[in-house]
Design a binder for these strands. Structure first.
Length: 420
RNA sequence: GGUGGCGUGUCCGAGCGGCCUAAGGAGCACGCCUCGAAAGCGUGUGUGGAAGAAAUUCCACCGUGGGUUCAAAUCCCACCGCCACCGCCA
């Protein structure tokens, strides 16, 4: 959630942020009214409550007639306090509901517009010219079959559309990618974490996934648990309700991720680009607000380092305002070149969420002037299926074998994946 | 799954209807003492919110949520968590 003080002092800033995101700016004004009502209700309640505290004390020491007279008064006052308290609770909850609906204040540097209005920041590497190699590239589904690495048919049989098995070198490729990711993250100072993927509503709500993203979240009705779509959720909630004492805190979480992919019918139905379940190593950082922008650049650099190590051509885009999650003020995506699609596709993504999540999750640190919310940032180090797609398609040979990137070889144990 | 016990401030821990404005201790910070330190002594030490230009004043918070009462850390109910034992499973 955003800072109410900012909203009171500069509502137009917030309205504008809502507008460029394509969200409703009128919530700002509804919240301003609700906030005014809330504060008046608090003043009313507290005045009565203070009166009651004084009166109650005098009852204790009073005797006889005096006492029964006081009691009568106190009884009446108790009723009024209770009523005022109910009004206060109602007003606070109403104002809070509006507050939760407002997305984080967009970074003025982020490009304005919808999904297509991103800005390309840079290209790294050059897409391979397969005509020069003298063969048509196969897509990852075909390569996966030849290598006996990916089995989408049995995935569909057992778990429905958008499911898959990684087998043989496919499974080994996952372990190698994860081990490479975790070891480089550890070297960079991250604490490796294997978090729970089944979380309570507070964690989901706190990270901002029950707003616009709610339709993509699996919910276990019977127990009121959620399956996380990213380990960002349990990593952010790790320090929920805490005052942390050393910043920055950097975690690298490895977990399964679950996504309903609602509203994507017919999109990427072939292969493992868009699936309901996959594993991912996610970087997550808690830092001071003034360090967040620099940290965001560091996260982007670690993502680029990973793609460089995988020897995959990619571009970096600055995602447009209308395409950001509600928690993020700015987002950079790394898009890998996918030869058989002739285009760049998102493989990793990093967001600066400033204080938005930590206000909801109540995560603070202490400085000279008291406690302040921390800033949170997240970034993908590696999302397994898409990285496998990029590696297979970019490093394939005419016979269906695939060259393993140098950096991955020590972790995989072979230089080339050969058809089984 | 059953039974019993317990959840209090940064930590330990007392309190079991009004004097709780939460004892006592530890820790931490500052000061005194000291050549310097330790010990000792003194002072201070939570979070959130409201009003105010500010000093400050007030309100809430004793696992969470309800309830009883003029008044709840304290009594009642539900839930959550921790511990112990029993049962079941590995």
């Amino acid at each position: 959630m955003i800072d109410l003080k900012v909203l009171r002092e500069n509502p137009e800033l917030v309205r504008n942020s809502q507008r460029v995101r394509g969200e409703d700016p009128s919530i700002v004004d509804q919240l301003l009214v609700a906030d005014e009502t809330r504060r008046q209700a608090i003043v009313d309640f507290e005045a009565l409550r203070a009166e009651q505290n004084i009166l109650s004390k005098s009852v204790g020491s009073a005797k006889g007639d005096e006492k029964s007279a006081l009691l009568e008064n106190a009884k009446d006052l108790a009723g009024r306090v209770k009523a005022a308290d109910a009004i206060r609770a109602e007003a606070e909850s109403a104002a809070h509901q509006f507050l939760l609906k407002i997305s984080n204040l967009i970074d003025s540097a982020a490009p304005v517009g919808g999904e297509a209005d991103f800005v390309v920041l840079e290209h790294v590497g050059t897409p391979r010219d397969f005509s020069q190699s003298g063969f048509e590239p196969k897509d990852h589904v075909e390569l996966g079959k030849i290598l006996k690495a990916i089995d989408t048919e049995r995935g569909a049989k057992v778990s429905g559309a958008r499911s898959y098995y990684l087998t043989g070198v496919g499974a080994l490729l996952e372990f190698a990618l994860v081990n490479y990711a975790i070891s480089s993250a550890t070297r960079a100072g991250f604490t490796p974490v294997i978090p729970p993927v089944l979380v309570k509503p507070a964690a989901m709500e706190g990270t901002g996934f029950l707003g616009q993203a709610a339709e993509n979240v699996y919910h276990l009705e019977e127990d009121d648990y959620y399956l996380v779509g990213t380990s960002e959720v349990p990593l952010a909630a790790y320090h929920m309700d805490e005052i942390v004492d050393s910043l920055p805190l950097r975690y690298a979480g490895y977990s399964s991720c679950f996504r309903r992919e609602a509203g994507t019918y017919g999109k990427d139905t072939r292969g493992i680009i868009r699936v309901h379940q996959f594993d991912k190593v996610e970087m997550f950082v808690f830092c001071k607000l003034e360090d967040a922008a620099a940290e965001h650049q560091r996260l982007l650099q670690w993502e680029k380092d990973f793609l460089n190590a995988m020897e995959i051509p990619y571009r970096v885009i600055d995602v447009a305002s209308g395409d950001l999650g509600s928690s993020a003020i700015r987002k950079f995506d790394c898009e890998a070149w996918i030869p058989t699609q002739g285009t760049y596709r998102e493989v990793t993504s990093t967001s600066n969420c400033t204080e938005f999540q930590s206000r909801r999750l109540n995560i603070r640190y202490r400085d000279e002037n008291g406690t302040k919310p921390v800033a949170t940032l997240n970034g993908t180090l590696v999302a397994i299926p898409r990285m496998i797609v990029a590696i297979l398609e970019n490093h394939q040979n005419a016979d269906g074998s695939v060259n393993v990137p140098l950096a991955l070889r020590p972790f995989l144990g072979v230089d080339t994946l050969v058809p089984a």
